[in-house]
Amino acid sequence: MNPVYISVVEGNPHLRSLLSWHLQQSGYLVQQCSGFHQARQAFNNQLPTLAVIDSDLTDGDGIELCRWLYQQHQSMIFILSAKDTEKDIVHGLKAGADDYLTKPFGMQEFLARIECLIRRVRTVAAPLLLDYGVLKIDLVQRRVEYQGNFVDLTPQEFSLLYVLTQAEGSALSRTELLRRAWPEAIDNPRTIDTHVLSLRKKIETDPRQPSLIQTVRNVGYRFNSSILEEKKVVAEKPVTLSPAGVSVLT
């Protein structure tokens, strides 16, 4: 069974240490983050299985962090908050939280809710690796391997590639790509063109004639996984020698 990686994002150092200690005693791998920006940086490097997020961070809005993490489609989210009105709870859940616990709370209830969320993670069993043959996307380490070589992608390029693959061949507009890949960004949708161009240079056989990330006129872009399947089939075909001694695919 894969280890469960939990990130605790809590501004109160005493509560953060206490929660982390109890989670570690329960057998979870735990990373501590003191605020919004530290958590964002940590999540860009590796998405946790479950993120426990305080809604009132000193350097940012915990609900906004929740909304950003929800767009990544990989982590369960558990909000802790001193705000206990129905409006506050609904706001947190609509932002993408899978559970919401108001402060103060008992440690046994906290751990029981954690266990319940982890059971849900193990039930859905989201893939940790997208394997398209010659292209492999590691969703935990946020690394990409193409034709046997690791490709150095920026966090923005990785998010863009992931969003394109999740569309399963459907074309996405620049505005939709911008919203899904970088929901916190306030930018011109045409910025997508720059990142697509950079991504093509890294994973296309011929970036001038792209076959993997295709432009769909008057719409945007689509991910063409079928071209990878064709390359996989060719690579797996056995090689034999003809009577003349020339290798041929059979």
Rank of each mutant, 00 (worst) to 15 (best):
I6L: 02
I6A: 03
I6F: 04
I6P: 01
V9K: 07
V9D: 00
E10N: 03
G11R: 03
P13I: 00
P13C: 00
H14E: 14
H14I: 12
L15H: 09
S17D: 14
S17L: 10
L18D: 11
L19W: 07
L19G: 04
L19T: 00
L19M: 15
S20N: 05
W21V: 08
H22P: 04
H22I: 00
L23P: 08
Q24S: 11
Q24R: 15
Q24C: 13
S26R: 11
S26E: 14
Y28N: 07
Y28I: 08
L29Y: 08
Q31K: 13
Q32R: 14
Q32C: 12
C33H: 11
C33Q: 13
G35L: 10
G35H: 10
H37A: 02
Q38G: 05
Q38P: 07
Q38L: 06
A39I: 05
A39E: 05
R40D: 07
R40F: 05
R40S: 11
R40T: 11
Q41I: 10
Q41F: 08
Q41E: 15
A42W: 03
F43L: 06
F43Y: 15
F43V: 02
N44D: 15
N45F: 01
N45W: 05
N45V: 06
Q46R: 15
L47S: 13
L47A: 10
P48F: 00
P48W: 04
P48L: 02
L50T: 05
A51I: 02
A51F: 06
I53W: 00
I53F: 03
D54T: 07
S55L: 11
L57E: 05
L57R: 09
T58C: 11
T58N: 11
G60Y: 14
G60M: 09
G62Q: 09
G62S: 10
G62C: 08
L65N: 01
L65A: 02
R67S: 13
R67C: 05
W68K: 06
W68R: 12
W68Y: 13
Y70N: 13
H73W: 12
H73E: 15
H73I: 03
